[in-house]
Amino acid sequence: MLTWLKRDELTFPPLDKALREPNGLLAAGGDLSPERLLAAYRHGCFPWYQDGQPLLWWSPDPRTVLYPDEMHVARSLRKRLRQNSYTVTFDRAFVDVIEGCAGPRSYTDGTWITTPMQQAYLRLHEMGVAHSVEVWADEHLVGGLYGLAMGRLFFGESMFSRATDASKVGFVTLVEHLRDWGFALVDCQMPTRHLESFGARSISRDAFARALAEHLDQPSTAIWGA
């Protein structure tokens, strides 16, 4: 049975209560307050819903993750990185990045990054928890991604690209920095061929929960926006 969250309670049901079909649906309702979002990520779930749906919370099993030391970079992409075609920055244009991620896609008519979602993650950015990666060609934003950094874990949310390999360059640059900053894991949520090409793999929900317990409260050496 699906749990409906009360607005005045920030607790989530145990992860093993998530439905098998659809995979990982854990709860519905609640709100997108910073306190609830932080509680959700610490618990091991995240919001994902479309316009017209109630707010839905997910904890899929298995969970797709990338260990920074296991990142694979294709030869053609390494060549692109050596060319220095793009400039990559952090936390310089969060609003523009999340708007880019929410923009229209060729494979779908809608977006799960609704206006309330954008506003919610902007609040987390202002709190220093949500971060953006910007990819520039000259003065033009041509790609980027955003997510949350908590302890030694990075929770990836979405990326976009307006030029060849732009989001890939941003992702590789981010993961290289996360590795150097001592991050243990990048949460990719659900599997895609794109992420698997970088070395992302599936782990059990239980293994992901153990990673949360181990790394959420560990300090990193991250310097965002530098």
Rank of each mutant, 00 (worst) to 15 (best):
E139S: 03
C188P: 09
L81T: 00
D96R: 15
W136C: 04
W181T: 04
W136R: 05
V129T: 11
L178Y: 14
D187V: 03
G170Q: 07
V97L: 06
D165I: 03
G144Q: 02
P191S: 11
T89A: 11
S132N: 11
R82S: 13
N84L: 10
T164D: 12
G103V: 03
H125I: 05
L141M: 01
G182E: 13
H140D: 15
W112N: 05
V97R: 06
V175K: 11
G151C: 10
F160M: 11
M117H: 07
R123S: 12
V172R: 06
G103L: 11
L148Q: 02
E139I: 08
M127K: 05
V135Q: 10
T173I: 10
P104F: 02
D109S: 09
T108P: 03
N84V: 02
Q119E: 15
G147A: 07
E126N: 14
Q83V: 01
Q119F: 03
Q119Y: 08
A130I: 06
A120P: 10
R123A: 13
R179F: 02
R92P: 03
G170I: 10
E99W: 00
R80F: 01
H177D: 12
G182A: 04
F94C: 02
E134N: 15
R105W: 04
H131N: 05
A137T: 02
L81R: 03
G103S: 14
G147D: 01
L153D: 01
L122W: 13
K168L: 03
R123N: 13
L153E: 00
A102G: 15
E157R: 09
E157K: 12
A137Y: 12
D165F: 09
H177P: 08
I98H: 11
L153Y: 06
H140M: 13
T164E: 15
A184D: 04
T108H: 02
D138M: 04
L185M: 15
A93M: 06
F183W: 06
L153F: 01
G182M: 07
T108I: 05
D109N: 09
R152H: 11
Q83C: 11
L185A: 13
V135M: 04
L141V: 04
V186P: 08
L122C: 03
L174C: 02
S85Q: 07
R152G: 09
M127C: 02
W181M: 05
W181K: 12
V172H: 03
V95L: 14
E134Y: 12
